[in-house]
Amino acid sequence: MGAKLTPKIILEGTRLTHKTDLAFALNEHPRIVGPRRYRYHSPLVSAEWCAFTDVPWGRGPINYAPEEEAQAMETYATWARLFELNRYYSWIVDRFHVSTRAYQLQAGRRDPDFSWLDPRLRVLGFRHVLCTRRPETFAAARAERLKISGKPSQYDDLDAFVREQDLFRRLVRESSLPWLELDVTDGDVAGAADRVAGWLEGTGGLSAPWGVS
């Protein structure tokens, strides 16, 4: 039996970059979570859950209103403590605090202070995977998404996605977590998952960091 696999991956990026598809692929990738002879529950969480309001596409830890900031910060603190208490497990996170900073900054609001969160995540071995695509391919990606989207209007302004992608690059670089920029333009989710697996294998990101106990 080899070392226990306990990767901790935060997927970030603007819309139309296959983050959620990749999250599911990573959560079943044998080089990341081990071979599976049967399917079972494994953590796949997201700050994108709109859990603050009782309406579809409502507010949550990313797009909270100014008066909900304390609630959002408490939510992140709760997740951080849960990760600390369950550190010897794999965690795949589809959007987290970088997405919150990006949303709040673009809304012209206060940049939330996550200086307390990065150190707690880093000691546990969390890493960012920033999903991106070439700017000229957003239109084709939108056409595919509109076939299934329940809210097509969110894809009206493609220029906003390009600007947001540049913002994500800046914010991920500002984080103290190790990060990988992953170009998903070709739509090959399985291949993208393989590239993430290779990065984790090559940089020690599949098992608990030394000193974590």
Rank of each mutant, 00 (worst) to 15 (best):
R120V: 07
Y89M: 11
N63W: 00
R39N: 08
L26A: 08
K4P: 10
R169E: 12
I148R: 14
L105K: 04
L200G: 02
R142Q: 14
E74T: 14
A72V: 03
L167S: 03
G205T: 13
Y64C: 01
L200T: 06
F138W: 02
E28D: 06
I62W: 03
R95S: 02
V189D: 09
A47D: 05
P152F: 06
N27F: 02
V93N: 02
R170E: 13
F96E: 01
T185Q: 15
N63V: 06
L200S: 05
P178W: 04
A107D: 04
H128M: 11
W49M: 04
L117A: 13
L206Y: 05
S149D: 07
R173E: 14
R195P: 05
V93D: 02
F168N: 02
R95H: 05
K4H: 14
T75W: 15
W116E: 11
D183N: 09
T132A: 12
A65T: 13
W179R: 13
W199A: 14
G125R: 06
G211D: 12
L105C: 01
L82H: 14
G198M: 09
A193P: 05
G60S: 01
R110Y: 08
H97S: 01
G198T: 08
I10R: 14
G211Y: 03
W91F: 11
Q106V: 00
L121C: 03
L117I: 15
G58S: 01
C50H: 02
A160S: 15
R15C: 07
R142T: 03
A208W: 09
A51C: 12
A70S: 12
Q165R: 01
D94M: 12
R170Q: 06
F168M: 03
S42E: 04
V123T: 15
T14R: 02
R170Y: 03
S176R: 07
V123P: 12
C50M: 07
V33C: 01
L16W: 03
T75V: 11
G34N: 05
V33Q: 00
E144P: 04
G60R: 02
H128S: 07
I92Y: 05
G211M: 13
L177A: 05
I32Y: 10
P35I: 08
W79G: 14
D54G: 03
E69W: 06
E144V: 10
E69V: 08
G202N: 09
R101H: 00
F96Q: 02
S207L: 12
I62K: 02
Q165A: 09
G150P: 11
T75P: 00
H29N: 01
P119T: 13
D21F: 14
A107T: 13
G204A: 08
R195Y: 07
A107R: 11
W199Q: 12
L124K: 08
T53P: 00
P152D: 06
V129P: 05
L5E: 11
E144N: 11
G125N: 10
E174V: 03
E28N: 13
D94T: 03
S115K: 14
T75Q: 06
G202L: 08
D111S: 15
V98Q: 04
F24M: 10
P43G: 02
G13I: 08
T17M: 04
T132W: 09
F168Y: 15
V45H: 04
A208L: 15
H97A: 04
E68N: 01
L146R: 12
C131W: 09
L177Y: 12
V45C: 00
